[in-house]
Amino acid sequence: MVRYYILFENYEQGLALHDLLDEAGVRNRIAPAPAAARGKLCCGMSLLVEEAELAAAKACIAAHGAVYYDIVGMENQLQPRRDRYC
């Protein structure tokens, strides 16, 4: 399953968009930026959004002219077969 990481040049940009997405009700959470995705310009944090929320997140970014560095998709490398229930 591919998940999307919104990358930023600094934490200020990241936290600002996090607030905007929360206000707009777009599900997202702060996650470490994947090492493999981290270009020279990226900072340690990213915002993780599921595929279903990606369009809404992009719309929110566009509506507010929010600044970000890149959006990258990445396969979740943890197996769904790990049998953790609650």
Binding site: M1, E50, N76, P80, R82, R84, Y85, C86
Partner: peptide, 18 residues
């Protein structure tokens, strides 16, 4: 504690589906 385990299970069971 309960709220902490739920997202993991939801993520694994549902969000991994295509």
């Amino acid at each position: 504690l309960l709220c902490q385990v739920l997202p993991t299970a939801v993520g694994d069971v549902f969000m991994t589906q295509e």
